[in-house]
Amino acid sequence: MNNNTDLINLIKSNYYKFSKGQKQIAQFIIDHYDKAAFMTAAKIGETVDVSESTVVRFAVSIGYSGFPELQKALQVLIKNKLTTVQRIGLEEDSGNDTDKQQKKIIKNELTNMRNLLDNLDTDAIDKAVDIILNANKVYILGLRTSFTLANYLGFYLDVILDNVKVLNNSGVNSLYEEIIRIKESDVLIVISYPRYSKNTLEATEFVKEHNAKIIAITDTESSPLYPISDVSILAKSSMVSFIDSLVVPMCILNNLIISIGMQEKDEIVEYYKKLEQLWDNHSIYQHD
């Protein structure tokens, strides 16, 4: 299954081929894909009055290995398509049990972290570290919620390296002014999650045209950044909410920072020795 295929259009284009039961499933997904993404095959079958096996066969008929793969595709779809208001509506469906809801949020994050541990592409991180350490200049781009991540990454990379620039978040014009001189010897680290920022994508395409290296930190292979990056570090999150969870991508950033830091250990130690002396001289931190 092509990850860039719009699933709803795929279902619509194959609608005439489906059996009567499959058409009922197809129509339910088209009308309620936000809910279908979190329903089991048995539950969807019960809802549209077909068997669970019919739901599984439906998934296979449109190119998936089974229902779990179709469900994952639906979850990617809603992260890209749902508005903030629609995301809030999904949370309202969870009920009014605040204790249960709060624990559910944490369990969801733990599941995401376990998935990251099981699927971490260490080769991609190693390749990204090598590109960053050999770059003439390191640019970091993240807009909207991802700007928090970009600032965090920039703060620590600036401790390790002396060629780091976090790109401005104040507007498109200032953004292009900052990257207009980017060269082949430079690298752009770009961070973007659903709903993907159009400005982020266009700026990354501009960098691609200038033949600079691109390291993308994003969620899945269906991200528009994936095909245009030299290295993609995927930090997937299945949370659907009116906020964007930064837990998994923050873990990826920590991994990247520490991996770079371990190769520049002597410089970091010297840097912090000087900083500690400055902090003491200016009473930056409270002492007992």
Rank of each mutant, 00 (worst) to 15 (best):
V269Y: 10
V166G: 01
D126F: 05
K274W: 03
L7G: 04
I25E: 02
I260D: 12
I106E: 05
G154R: 01
K208M: 12
V164L: 12
E264G: 01
V164T: 11
L110G: 02
G154N: 04
Y271G: 00
S170W: 05
I258V: 15
A59T: 11
S223L: 05
I189F: 06
A41V: 05
T204M: 09
F38D: 07
S192T: 13
E184C: 00
G21F: 10
A203G: 07
L74K: 09
D121L: 04
N119Y: 05
H32T: 01
I233Q: 09
V172F: 05
Q86R: 08
R195E: 14
R114M: 11
I228T: 03
V166N: 02
I191N: 02
A36D: 00
N9E: 15
L175G: 06
V50E: 13
A150S: 14
N169V: 10
T148K: 12
H32K: 13
G89D: 05
E109F: 06
L117W: 00
S174Q: 14
R144N: 13
S13C: 02
P249H: 03
N134A: 06
G21S: 11
D230L: 01
S94L: 14
K43G: 01
N9H: 13
I258H: 05
D130N: 14
Q286D: 13
L278Y: 10
N2P: 15
L234Q: 08
L133K: 04
I189K: 00
Y285N: 15
V231F: 12
V55Q: 01
G95T: 00
A212L: 00
T145Q: 12
I214P: 03
E276G: 07
K198Q: 14
P224E: 06
L149G: 02
Q22V: 01
F58L: 08
Y15L: 14
V85K: 13
D230Y: 02
